[in-house]
């Protein structure tokens, strides 16, 4: 039985345009997989299908060998490019909201506080969602999903709009989650970020997976820098 997230022949069209064309990939627990590709390659559509926001035309999505139905919020959580929090709830109230929504065991408050401390958010516990920066909103959502015990985390363009310090903090958090055993997928345009963070990458072009492997494997498929190879594959 394959462990982690396994996606097989995922396809999604909008009218005549095929946004995803029978794409298959996997993300094991404790692995960061990068979904990279040019604009319009199908990265966001793939994430929307995985998280249940969009209904795929064909294909299966399984976790630990079990096929997932439409309601998969407790297994796969998507943090979109614009991470939306509740503007009128404080950071701590987000933790309370998730803990009670998911009927977590009684130690949720201790675990919640530990998570906020780990993500450097404890000083912001009373801050309203409306005044959080993008980085802090991302951290709030990641803390909430980790607290809920979601084993697969998808981050759509997580590094866009973050300052260098925010990018470094987020990379550190993602590495911590990887060591905790969370399966993480990130979509990005930033090749250097993918290189620094991802164990494996999938390159999408026109809704098809045109290359899969570690950064080194991808690099060795062509000549020159990773950027040259990427442009060669997707050009």
């Amino acid at each position: 039985m394959a462990s982690g997230l396994v996606v097989t022949n995922l396809a999604k069209s909008f009218g005549q345009k095929a946004a995803l064309n029978e794409v298959s990939f996997a993300a094991a627990p404790g692995e960061i997989v990068g979904l990279i590709g040019p604009n319009g390659a199908g990265k966001s559509t793939a994430f929307a299908c995985l998280s249940g926001f969009l209904r795929p035309d064909t294909g299966t999505i399984a976790f630990n060998g079990e096929e997932l139905g439409g309601d998969r919020g407790r297994i796969i959580s998507l943090i979109p490019e614009t991470p939306e929090v509740y503007p009128l709830l404080t950071v701590w109230e987000h933790v309370v909201f998730v803990a009670r929504l998911c009927r977590l065991p009684d130690d949720w408050a201790t675990r919640g506080e530990a998570l906020l401390a780990r993500f450097g958010m404890l000083s912001e516990r009373d801050t309203l969602g409306s005044t959080l920066s993008k980085g802090m909103r991302q951290k709030t959502l990641i803390a909430a999903t980790v607290l809920a015990g979601t084993p697969v985390l998808l981050l759509d363009e997580p590094l866009i709009g973050l300052d260098p310090l925010g990018q470094r903090e987020l990379r550190e958090i993602l590495r911590q989650l990887r060591s905790d055993g969370t399966a993480i997928m990130i979509s990005t345009h930033q090749l250097e970020a993918a290189e620094a963070l991802c164990d494996r990458v999938i390159i999408l072009k026109d809704g098809r997976a045109v290359a899969t492997g570690t950064i080194e494997e991808i690099r060795s498929a062509g000549t020159g820098s990773l950027e040259d190879v990427f442009l060669e594959i997707t050009g």
């Binding site: 939306e84 503007p87 404080t90 950071v91 309370v96 929504l101 506080e113 009373d126 409306s130 005044t131």
Partner: peptide
């Protein structure tokens, strides 16, 4: 659904550790 500030101008609110919040969807 973007995080915009509320009409009333404040940025934080006291959040007690233990809320008597209902469990499940009643939240």
């Amino acid at each position: 659904g973007a995080a915009v500030a509320p009409k009333r101008v404040y940025t934080s609110a006291r959040s007690p550790k233990a809320y008597h919040a209902p469990a499940g969807l009643a939240i």
